[in-house]
Amino acid sequence: MLQPQWLRTFRTLVSVGNFTRTAEQLDLTQAAVSQHVRHLETQLGKLLIRHPRKLELTPAGHALLDYAREMETAEQRLAQRLAGNEDSHGDIRLITPGSIGLALYPRLLALQQASPGLNIHHRFAPTREVVESVLENRFELGIVTQKPDDPRLSVTELTREPLELVVPAGVEIHDWRDLETLGFIDHPDGQDMASRLLSRRFPGNPGVRSLPRSGSTNQISLILEPVARGLGFSVVPRHAREAFQNPQAIKVVAPADGDVEVVDTLWWITRAEWPLSARARRVQRDLQAGL
């Protein structure tokens, strides 16, 4: 029989990659950590290959890690079910794209202040990771920018979010050459967002890839910082622009008469097979009411 403590030790060891740090994190001795691994290997065969600076999992090790994660998920589901009717205590696990996450996180903290028994766990992630995390039950609530069609997911519309062309304050944009002069501040979704918006604003343009890149960042909260310093322009969702801390240094280029806004729909996703906890339903209601 596999003892739960052995599984916790193994899962932590794989996560941190070091026997000493595992012992410190679990408040065990290093000898105890090694003993737990030996117990597991006695029953299951070799699980780890020890290299000087890393640990490598054997096929048996990968299988055990999957099993340990499944057990952890089952424990979380049990805890959620036992506390599912309580909307002011327990964990709230929400995973979102960056832009909407910037807008929602302060509201989540306000919710936690109003109900100190709640524990907020919020992660920023692209749509693919959001879907995977909800399907694997690591997060109860997710928000995505593309509507998934997986039958295991329940999908409902949250809000609609326009894309915006943002330039330094005082800069005028009349044609494509003005964008070429500024240069593009890129980000992980920048090429896609800019292509969709600029194709509407500047029909027949040679494409965003033809523009000089003046910089890039993968931090959603920092995308507009170089724009504010006059180093280029970017295309971001409205919530990212609204959350920027230096709004007087930037300007949104409004669409011309007749231009159609480019708008992304944001979707709630949850597992379809079981009901949401009361606290998750409360989060949905409170956050949606503020958008």
Results as ranks from 00 to 15, higher is better:
A103S: 14
V252G: 00
A68N: 02
R281S: 12
Q80W: 15
G84R: 01
T73L: 04
N246R: 15
E225I: 12
I220V: 15
L165A: 12
Q245P: 08
A289I: 06
S277T: 15
K147V: 07
P188V: 12
N218K: 10
N85V: 10
H39I: 04
Q25P: 00
G290S: 13
A63L: 12
A249Q: 15
G232F: 02
R279Y: 01
D178K: 00
R152N: 09
A289N: 11
E172W: 05
T29M: 06
R77E: 14
D286S: 12
L231M: 14
G258M: 08
G190D: 02
G215V: 09
H174I: 09
R241F: 05
E140F: 05
H239P: 06
I269L: 08
G204Y: 08
A63G: 04
A194F: 03
D66T: 14
G84M: 08
T58H: 06
P59H: 01
L182F: 02
L198S: 07
L109Y: 04
R213G: 00
M71G: 01
V16P: 06
A110K: 13
V131Y: 03
A31L: 11
S195P: 04
S133I: 09
L182D: 05
T217K: 03
A272M: 07
R8P: 04
L2A: 12
I100H: 01
R8W: 02
N18C: 14
Q288E: 15
E164V: 12
V131P: 03
F19E: 15
D150T: 05
G204F: 07
A83S: 15
L109W: 05
L224N: 09
G142W: 01
L165P: 03
